[in-house]
Write a protein that binds this DNA or RNA. Structure first.
Length: 354
DNA sequence: CACCCGTGGAG
DNA sequence: TCTCCAAGGGT
């Protein structure tokens, strides 16, 4: 297919069918960056309220840089992939303190920032600064693999190179931003993963996948399936109307967020057995079991978390010893409202405490 | 390169 | 219920 034909047809389609989204009304690199981070692996519908909340609470990169990380994570609560929020905050500080609050303006300079990879760097460079550099996201892989009948595995290194080369040959010097926006919007609205609308496609006469009936098998993507099951025993320790919360460590799910005191095993045990296994029987000798919950199932992309909660009342005398032994702190319910928490924990809190 | 990181919605 | 996924990036 002729490259100029494709670009002009694509932009024409985009201008006619594009959704009216708030981050499409600005060339402010900060707001574009914010929207791109939020939209990573996230649907517009899910990300929209978060974009509006962040843009209002942190209108400039300086505002974001000066916030506490906990406050940023709290506003991000419920959106998932929390490393995005932590990296975004780190990058805001760098831009504020080392770049005088001015965003880098080129693809290669943007790439040096935490949380900005090839896709996001290309998006900011083209949307904010009209740099002629192609975005490569799930939509672009799908659209190009179908149009050109390319069956290289898009998750392989070779596939990424091949599609990147092709996309950068197709992107025009004029309106590179509209081209990038257009090809993604085209993939999101028309050339969809399932049931693409080939009837209304401006390229259905040239599209290899359409001409050969391979829409459903392209793009080719190696599938990975390693779903593991985890068994979380949460001890909800209560003392003087305060609950014990613990910041989660790095290198596991929900790092930087707060949950209850967690004992993980390969299967569920009774409270008695659990305390024995962890040599906690004596420490909790005077604790009162106030409630034992049912099993909650929380689904993540690569794991299934089963959680049970035991409510234990602790005497005020014993609470500081328990806190130091377990590395936990007690918080009032008001304070807990302000802590960033995983959806599972937040739901449970709302069910029994809020 | 393989694996890890969330959540909610669609089919 | 189950699978796949949605504007990826870090390690």
């Amino acid at each position: 297919m002729n490259k100029h034909f494709f670009a002009s047809k694509l932009i024409e389609w985009y201008l006619r069918h594009k959704r009216d989204l708030p981050w499409r009304h600005t060339r402010n690199p900060y707001l574009i960056w914010l929207s791109e981070i939020i939209l990573q692996q996230t649907r517009v519908k899910q990300g929209m309220p978060y974009y509006l909340a962040f843009a209002e609470k942190f209108p400039t990169v300086q505002d974001l840089a000066q916030a506490d990380e906990r406050e940023v994570l709290r506003l991000w609560q419920g959106l998932g992939y929390y490393a995005r929020a932590r990296n975004m905050h780190k990058t805001a500080k760098i831009v504020h303190e080392q770049h005088q609050g001015t965003f880098p303006e080129t693809y290669s300079n943007l790439l040096t920032l935490k949380g900005i990879g090839p896709y996001t760097a290309a998006a900011i460079a083209s949307f904010a600064f009209q740099e002629q550099v192609a975005v490569l996201d799930g939509n672009v892989f799908r659209v190009l693999s179908r149009l050109f009948g390319i069956d290289t595995d898009i998750s392989s290194n070779e596939g990424k190179k091949q599609f990147t080369k092709l996309a950068n040959e197709l992107i025009p010097a004029e309106n590179p931003d509209l081209f990038n926006q257009g090809i993604m919007e085209f993939g999101a609205l028309l050339c969809t993963p399932v049931s693409p609308q080939c009837m209304f496609c401006p390229f259905n006469n040239e599209c290899i996948a359409n001409l050969t009936g391979r829409q459903e098998v392209l793009p080719v993507k190696a599938k990975k399936n390693n779903s593991k099951e985890r068994y979380f025993h949460y001890l909800i320790l209560k003392s003087d109307d305060k609950l014990a919360m613990k910041e989660r460590n790095m290198k596991d799910i929900w790092s930087g967020l707060y949950d209850f005191y967690l004992l993980e095993e390969k299967e569920f045990y009774s409270l008695e057995t659990l305390l024995l296994k962890h040599d906690l029987t004596e420490l909790f000798g005077e604790a009162t079991l106030e409630k034992e919950s049912l099993t909650y199932t929380h689904i993540l992309t690569h794991q299934k978390v089963y959680a049970r909660f035991w409510h234990l009342a602790i005497s005020s005398e014993k609470s500081s010893e328990i806190a130091s032994r377990l590395g936990i702190s007690f918080y009032s319910l008001d304070e807990i409202q302000d802590l960033p928490k995983p959806v599972l924990i937040n739901k449970y809190l709302h069910e029994y405490f809020f």
